[in-house]
């Protein structure tokens, strides 16, 4: 029975793969007018990197919802009653500790760099948050602790939602001033984007960190 089922799955997926290859080879693509529209509006976006402009300005609403998606996993993880708290296991590995001593400060620096460079080159809140969360994980593995003890899960809550809350606050402000949702005035767009991205960096790093057992 199982052998037959396996063969059927393999055969089916082969057919799917061939159909997909056929489809992608035969796409008659249109003129790249959307990319041109992005370059055309870039000057008003507050940043000079087109991808950041799309993520934090032209399609900022998608990013806002995506941050909400990112919030779901740590919330659900916290909501499920656990049988025993995950025990912190310091490894006492001298190599790991030496690595952490060098890499963690560098990672912090790199995260800040990535956050700031996002306006003009590849980078931004998501990259910075991933590096920051990586530094926290390394710290945890090397020393058995990472976040300060006073930052209990309950007290982490405001930090966890900070990015999304800033995003929402800017959105409400733009609506209440009679504009469009998340429609930044061009003069303020750069500042708004940096504020939102800074909050997102902290919140997303914490969200990623919270997923570690």
């Amino acid at each position: 029975m199982r052998v037959v089922a396996h063969r059927l799955i393999v055969a089916g997926c082969t057919v799917v793969g061939l159909a997909l290859v056929y489809a992608v080879v035969n796409v008659q693509g249109p003129a790249p007018d959307l990319a041109l529209a992005v370059s055309g509006a870039l000057a008003e976006s507050g940043v000079s990197h087109p991808v950041t402009a799309v993520l934090l300005n032209f399609r900022a609403y998608d990013t806002l919802l995506e941050v909400a998606v990112m919030l779901v996993a740590p919330l659900v993880a916290a909501a499920l009653p656990t049988t025993a708290p995950a025990p912190a296991k310091p490894t006492n590995d001298p190599v790991l500790q030496a690595l952490a001593a060098v890499a963690v400060p560098l990672a912090l620096l790199l995260a800040i760099y990535l956050l700031l460079i996002g306006a003009s080159r590849s980078g931004g809140a998501f990259h910075a948050a991933a590096v920051l969360a990586g530094a926290l994980v390394l710290l945890q593995l090397a020393t058995g602790r990472s976040l300060p003890a006073w930052l209990t899960p309950t007290r982490q809550q405001p930090l966890l939602i900070l990015g999304l809350a800033l995003f929402c606050a800017v959105g409400w402000l733009s609506l209440l001033l009679g504009g469009y949702f998340l429609g930044y005035p061009p003069a303020w767009a750069g500042v708004m984007i940096l504020v939102i991205e800074s909050g997102l960096t902290l919140s997303l790093a914490l969200a990623l960190w919270r997923l570690m057992p």
């Binding site: 909400a68 809550q157 939602i161 809350a165 929402c168 959105g171 409400w172 609506l175 469009y180 949702f181």
Partner: peptide, 25 residues
């Protein structure tokens, strides 16, 4: 003055903002 079509984003943002407030309260 709020635009009349702002109703649409508000229908999304009000529940979302409330969810955030509820996480703190």
């Amino acid at each position: 003055m709020i635009r009349s079509d702002a109703l649409l984003p508000i229908l999304v943002m009000l529940p979302l903002s409330l969810a955030l407030l509820l996480l703190l309260s």
